[in-house]
Amino acid sequence: MSGILASEARKWRHSSIQWVVLASSLIPLVLSAADLALRARGFPDRQAALQSNAEIWALGSFLTLVLAGCHVFSREYQDGTIRPLFATPHHPLPFLFAKLAVTVLVLAAAMFLSFAARFLGALLLASGPWDAAFVRRFLGRTVLYTLQFALLAPWIALIGIVMKRMFSSLLVAFGFIVMLFPFHRTDLYWLFPHLVPVVHFSKTIGFDGSDLAFRTPGWISLGVFFILTLGLCMALFRRR
């Protein structure tokens, strides 16, 4: 298993997509700079401009991360490397789990970086000394949402395995976003965790999601969704 994990990590390390993910994760810093510029100019509708920027960023980041996830899965099919992979004396499951582990790590790292960038941006913008309670709350939420975000990995894996080509995978992911977009009400910044519990989400139109972590039904649907998706991945990622 360690050999498989090391191989997966190596494939990722040499990929140029890691730089795209890194750049995408640091965009909150640019947003903070944009806010500074808006303040300096005394822009009349500053909040609306910030909201719009954040929405575009959220959408772009989501696609970037799907691109990263699909890179791990659908490229194996696209480049024909899945055949030599399955021609090795290993069961397909360790490959699936190694790929999921790498995807989870990358997504979590990207999410963490985003939050760190947002936090740094907030610090830059803050006029007075920052509140210790705010920092604790902020970091707590960061860890929580990073964990939730990691649950996206099997969903992305599923798209990658089913579509088998990166471009098709991205199109499907984009379709999902467009489909879910009208349901979302307030803060697209939390788009990522909201996309995961599709079942729960579709039942509660207008669901804000900011209290997702503290609602039991949300967690149950997350768990069910996670297990179902993982099961599907296991069923599909095999020699046929």
Binding site: R10, K11, H14, S16, D79, G80, T81, R83, P84, A87
Partner: peptide, 12 residues
């Protein structure tokens, strides 16, 4: 084995 065209990771 080689099955069909041999696939490789192009970035390696």
């Amino acid at each position: 084995s080689i099955v069909e065209t041999p696939g490789f990771y192009p970035n390696l």
